[in-house]
Simulated scan of single mutants.
Amino acid sequence: MTWATGKHALITGGGTGIGAAVARALAAAGATVSLIGRRADLIEAVARETGGSAFVADVTDPEQQSRAFTAARAAHGAFDYVVLNAGIGDSRPFLRTKRETWDAILATNLTALFDGAQLALPDLQAPGKRLVIVASVAGLKGGAMAAPYVASKHGAVGLARSLALEFARTGLTVNAICPSFVDTPMVDASAERIAGATGRSVEEARAMLAKTNGNGRLITADEVAYSVVQLLHPDASGVNGACVTIDGGTSA
């Protein structure tokens, strides 16, 4: 028996990248995983791989997210661990950023966290329960050419810290994971945008992003998942309100 046997973990954005890596790691630790995502094919593939369940929903639609949480709870019982991971990014000069872009990024990266936390918290107010918000190092410092993304991730960090304090005496822990550039489809999209704007190749753009990490390479999704799983472990009950940076040493 492994440490997460009998536990129910829900992960948003579970079809690719960090979310899929977290699902695999938790399944390996014995947890039953419920995956929420917009693309059925992606989350169903990860569900088959991990023995979990897939629930299709756009987290920016509060009714869809609510139905998915309800269905996951009906399928596997109350949540023990909830990882709010779904997110999007964009990069462009602030004065060329449209209001629609701002609204879309805030809806996914911040407002959906508010909705998800409210849906999850009725299950989580007990010792051993865990809520992890996947934020970003962009939530800890400013960043040019990405104001909406940076603002949304500052909000994500603030939400995690506030919930950690508010619910600390229930036994729940709430923490934020703050990775830098991770080798995921989101970084692929960033590299394509940079290539289109600068004339560089996509490979050159990826290399440029990798160099911003302290170790000179992209962080892997599995490395982020490892830190998430550490925060979910029963021995991590004293870690609450933390912002765990995974950036290869950039913030050292």
Rank of each mutant, 00 (worst) to 15 (best):
A25C: 09
A25K: 03
L119C: 08
G249A: 12
L165H: 04
A9I: 05
E49M: 05
I36M: 02
A29N: 07
A28I: 02
L84E: 00
S190L: 15
D90S: 15
A47N: 10
T220H: 14
N213V: 00
A28L: 14
L165N: 05
G158R: 07
R24K: 13
L110E: 06
L10N: 02
D61W: 07
V244E: 02
L35H: 05
G216C: 11
Q65D: 03
P234G: 14
A189C: 11
N240H: 05
A47C: 12
T108F: 00
R193Y: 10
D115Q: 13
A225G: 08
T16D: 09
I18G: 03
A146F: 06
S237W: 12
A135S: 15
L26N: 04
G216E: 13
G14R: 01
M208T: 15
M145D: 12
V134P: 04
D41K: 11
A120G: 01
L84H: 04
P127C: 12
I11N: 02
A197W: 08
A21K: 05
R39A: 12
R200V: 02
N109K: 09
H76M: 05
A160W: 02
A225K: 06
D58V: 14
A225N: 11
V83H: 10
A68V: 14
C243Q: 14
A221D: 13
D247L: 09
A40Y: 08
A72T: 08
E100I: 07
H154F: 15
T50M: 02
G143E: 03
